[in-house]
Design a protein around this nucleic acid. Structure first.
Length: 287
DNA sequence: AAGCGCCCCAACCGCTCGGCT
DNA sequence: AAGCCGAGCGGTTGGGGCGCT
């Protein structure tokens, strides 16, 4: 069936929004709230279709929007969320308060993609490029080993990321306890009041550094076999001292194979956050 | 100063999803 | 169950800004 256009396009204005249009839309939404978007242009006196009004509001006019470039911390979050969710920009955006899917998508396409490639990581699969290239050469092997399409890393065992879960009810006791140790009760309760499991607040970078430095201490005793595996890609990439954690399989003693099986690497699984900072600074001058 | 090319991001387009009848 | 419709999502585009020659 042929889809009807979202609105009658005859006589509608296109292109950049004027300050006057912004003001009208802003006034209308602030006064009346977000109702049926199709009706908004008429009621607000705008020559735009409802869909454009909604986009303008969500991407530009919303008062809770943050402006400016994504911080290093936000960038790290985007990368990790992307490794788990794929190109689900709105899902990713929902974990970054004040950021829009459009903004994150743009930032990904213009900045993060390049940075990851520079680091030798394939932005699509979040796997080292050397492995991706190998797989391209040997498609049969790839299928046997990975058993899922490379384009959609998130589709296999998709779960909402639990690493950011800040509720005390969380089953993820490891992460919860890290946070409980690092934040005092007031901070923790404030987060709990404001956000549910799905709505994850932005943690202050300083708090995060604290969390991660604590976890470094505890992780130093864990799974030495992970870092001592003889797979070559880490050496090839000359990364700083990474430890690749198990991804949902605590009995797996080969970190690299585990990464391949899960078809992703998570920066949040880098136990030592300072190593990540070091990587960023050594690779493209961040931090 | 002018021309050119590149980069970035706001905006657009078209498809999908989910609720309703 | 099928169709309609509003809303949301993700990919793409176009134009403005900026640096370089």
């Amino acid at each position: 069936m042929g889809r009807q256009p979202c609105c009658d396009k005859v006589g509608l204005k296109k292109g950049p929004w004027t300050a006057e249009e912004d003001r009208k839309l802003m006034n209308f939404i602030l006064t009346n709230g977000q109702c049926c978007w199709r009706a908004v242009p008429k009621l607000a006196g705008l020559l735009r279709c409802g869909k454009r009004c909604r986009l303008r509001w969500t991407n530009y006019l919303r008062p809770d929007l943050k402006r400016g470039l994504l911080s290093d911390y936000e960038e790290k979050m985007v990368i990790d969320l992307h490794s788990q969710l794929g190109n689900r920009w709105s899902k990713i955006a929902s974990h970054l308060p004040g950021r829009t899917d459009n903004e994150i998508k743009n930032h990904w396409n213009t900045h993060i993609k390049k940075k990851l490639r520079k680091m030798g990581i394939d932005p699509l699969t979040h796997k080292p490029l050397s492995i991706v290239e190998q797989e391209d050469e040997e498609p049969v092997k790839k299928l046997q080993k990975v058993q899922m399409p490379l384009q959609e890393p998130a589709e296999k065992n998709f779960e909402e990321p639990t690493s950011y879960c800040l509720t005390k009810e969380s089953n993820n006791t490891k992460n919860t306890s890290r946070l409980e140790e690092s934040l005092d009760d007031d901070q923790f309760n404030a987060m709990n009041l404001e956000y549910g499991v799905e709505d994850v607040p932005l943690i202050d970078p300083e708090s995060l550094e604290l969390i991660c430095s604590n976890s470094t201490m505890s992780s130093s005793t864990s799974t030495p076999s992970n870092s001592s595996n003889d797979s070559s890609f880490l050496k090839d990439l000359q990364f700083p001292d990474f430890e690749w954690s198990d991804y949902g399989n605590s009995n797996n003693n080969d970190g690299v194979d585990n990464i391949i099986e899960n078809n992703m690497m998570s920066l949040w699984d880098v136990d030592d956050f300072s190593s990540w900072d070091l990587l960023l600074s050594s690779t493209f001058g961040l931090v």
